[in-house]
Amino acid sequence: MIVGVGIDVAEIDRFAAALERTPQLAERLFVTGELLLPGGERRGVASLAARFAAKEALAKALGAPRGLRWTDAEVVTEDSGQPVLLVRGTVAARATALGVRHWHVSLSHDAGVASAVVIAER
């Protein structure tokens, strides 16, 4: 049973400008594993914008409650290339309260826009 669905878009140039204006923003939004590619290089801004959109979509799927921490949701990429959500702390607590047992996430970026869809399933 679907508990919630969230969708979000992020304008990549606008997101890049926000990261440039506020250097600490990336560390407030993402855990280290999200900021770096498997080889240790810094992840590109389009990919980060899609991950940010996923976190926004996740919050919407959970009913957009106050108090969720950005770093309590992590988007990881499996070897197959599929994105997967890992949740802990405030996000895990809200998901547990709603009975969420499985996440579906899709990320995309094209034509200057990053997007994400998250489905929370019981």
Rank of each mutant, 00 (worst) to 15 (best):
H102P: 08
G89E: 01
S80F: 03
A92G: 02
E74A: 11
R69S: 14
G99R: 05
R66T: 11
L62C: 10
V100Y: 00
G99M: 11
V84A: 15
A73N: 06
S106N: 08
R94Q: 15
A59T: 00
G63K: 06
S80C: 03
V100L: 03
V87P: 01
L98F: 06
H104V: 13
R69I: 07
A61N: 04
R101I: 08
H102L: 09
D79G: 15
A95I: 03
L85R: 01
A61T: 06
E56P: 08
K55C: 10
A61C: 10
A61S: 13
H104Y: 12
F52I: 04
E78Y: 05
V91M: 12
A64N: 13
E56D: 09
G67P: 04
A97C: 04
G81S: 15
A93H: 03
V76K: 02
W103K: 12
D79V: 00
E78A: 10
H104T: 13
R69N: 11
G99P: 04
L68H: 02
W70T: 04
A64E: 04
W103T: 13
E74T: 00
R88W: 01
L68R: 07
A57L: 10
L86I: 06
A57G: 02
L85N: 04
L62D: 14
P65Q: 04
V75M: 02
A73S: 11
Q82W: 01
V100R: 00
L107Q: 08
S80T: 15
L68V: 00
T71G: 07
A95V: 01
R88A: 07
L62N: 09
R94K: 14
R101K: 09
A64W: 05
S106Y: 13
L86C: 12
L86N: 03
V91Q: 11
D72C: 05
L98K: 09
E74R: 01
Q82R: 11
G63E: 12
A92Q: 10
G67K: 06
R69P: 05
T71R: 07
L85Y: 04
E56R: 08
T96Q: 15
E74N: 00
W103N: 04
A57F: 02
R66N: 10
L86Q: 07
A92V: 00
L58M: 11
G99D: 12
R101G: 15
H102K: 11
Q82I: 08
G67T: 02
G63H: 12
R88K: 14
A92K: 09
A53K: 13
A57D: 08
G99K: 03
G67E: 07
L68T: 14
K60A: 11
A95E: 01
A64K: 07
H102W: 13
A92C: 03
S80E: 08
T90F: 10
V91D: 03
R66K: 09
A54V: 06
A95S: 10
R88G: 06
L98V: 15
V87Y: 00
E56T: 13
W70P: 01
T71A: 02
A53I: 01
K60H: 08
L86K: 14
G81Q: 14
